[in-house]
Design a protein around this nucleic acid. Structure first.
Lengths: 250, 250
DNA sequence: TGCATTCATTGATTTGAGTCAAAAAACGCA
DNA sequence: TGCGTTTTTTGACTCAAATCAATGAATGCA
């Protein structure tokens, strides 16, 4: 009980990260993919005024499942995870958030998931109330947000098929293929490059994404390596040697 | 043109569709909960002109996973399911659609799921292109749609925790509790009534919702019955006798 | 009313993934 | 460079849920 309280206190402290004045959106790398993409200069300026940039280091959380969430944010750099968990500690990663993706629940008060940085992350953070007001009066932003949310919903539902109906080997294969696509977007589009990527998470997190245990994930990885379908030069990087074979397993 | 395509599609798909002129939204039972809730009379009239009401009988599908979806819709009466499936026939129900819920993917061309009526269903159907145009010029409708989509996303992610991390008994308990809440909304709010409800689906569909087999669902149901936690007067209705015990299992 | 069909239950058995436990490898840091 | 810590791998074993196979109930229709 005291332990729980202590953890809550620590959580609160976590938020106090490097708060930086928001610099010009004009130099923002994800500006044309994020929800602010369709805003003009003056609108961008107004949005600028209600938000600020913030760094979050790997492992730190921005909001917690079931707690009041008074902010929303845009990921500028880094990767975050959305998690839901049961009382006994079992955890499921229910979403991954990449640069240009949106975080939080506009027009709602409590966060349905915990949001945690997987790598060091740079965010554009907005107080939710101010963001809600801004959004309501800027249809082009709401439109963009709607489009993104609809895509996320489709992606989440696709993942439900994996969680509910796929075997461990199918889950791993699907995961590796999706990761190679997702992480390729950031890097060069060269085939050789996209077949080698560095996972931003360890085995336990892979297990939490796929609804498996760490041991099962590990065994599947080594099996694929032994079969020459993938290579694992170090524990974070994956090289897909035989994409066809992997696709056949997915 | 779009209308012609739409009619052709309906014929090809053999949807028995009593296409009725859309009657006045003013008498619509779900009007104040659906996306059209915030529209005024003239806007409602304009929306009226691009859509029409349609009956779909139980078991018939409105759109298919991976195929072009030229329409979006609002459920007026009945229940529909969204399914994703694998080539070998394994199926996962990834969403349930109740009266006032929205169906389809605005601003996108292909449907990510198959949408099928579970009971006889009454819909407000709109050609997607026309709906997109209307939505883009009616921020209040887009706002409503965004809010609904965000809620759906939270719900889907909550379901991912169940699919990925819960045991069969936990899945069944969570399912029964959620169903009693969901189905209670339609009926009377009396406690006695909400503890007895008629499932709109058979055992196989329950299995497809929970990522289980029909045998496991059946065994869990009979176990709960033997333990006196629920009663099963006929194969569709469930009576929750000991809600506390059920919550303890969830 | 009876028959056929679909749907649900029950039982026996198998198996894939989880659990428990230990060893090995990688990593960070003094 | 070496040491302690964390992460990953590997092995032995267990068990929950799937599979396979009948049987039993409910439902609809001729």
């Amino acid at each position: 009980m005291a332990d729980e309280l202590h953890r809550l206190q620590l959580r609160r402290l976590n938020i106090a990260s490097n708060v930086i004045d928001m610099n010009q959106c004009s130099v923002c790398l994800i500006r044309n993919r994020a929800i602010c993409a369709d805003l003009d200069a003056s609108e961008l300026d107004a949005l600028n005024k209600i938000g600020h940039q913030q760094q979050i280091e790997s492992g730190r959380s921005l909001m917690w499942e079931g707690e009041d969430a008074h902010l929303v944010a845009n990921v500028v750099e880094g990767v975050m995870k959305l998690t839901s968990s049961l009382e006994d500690g079992r955890e499921q990663i229910v979403g991954l958030v990449y640069p240009s993706d949106f975080i939080g629940r506009p027009y709602g008060t409590t966060s349905a998931q915990t949001v945690t940085a997987i790598t060091d992350t740079k965010l554009c953070v907005f107080p939710r109330a101010a963001f809600d007001d801004f959004a309501k009066s800027h249809p082009r932003l709401e439109h963009k947000l709607l489009d993104k949310t609809l895509s996320e919903l489709d992606r989440a539902r696709q993942w439900m098929l994996l969680l509910g109906r796929k075997s461990a080997s199918e889950k791993i294969a699907s995961f590796l293929l999706e990761m190679s696509e997702r992480l390729a977007e950031q890097g060069c589009a060269d085939v050789a490059v996209t077949s080698s990527f560095k996972l931003p998470f360890g085995r336990q997190q892979v297990a939490d994404i796929l609804g498996l245990t760490i041991e099962t994930v590990s065994r599947q990885f080594t099996r694929l390596k032994k079969q020459g379908i993938i290579d694992l030069p170090d524990r974070r990087t994956v090289v897909i040697l035989d994409r066809g074979a992997l696709a056949l397993e997915a």
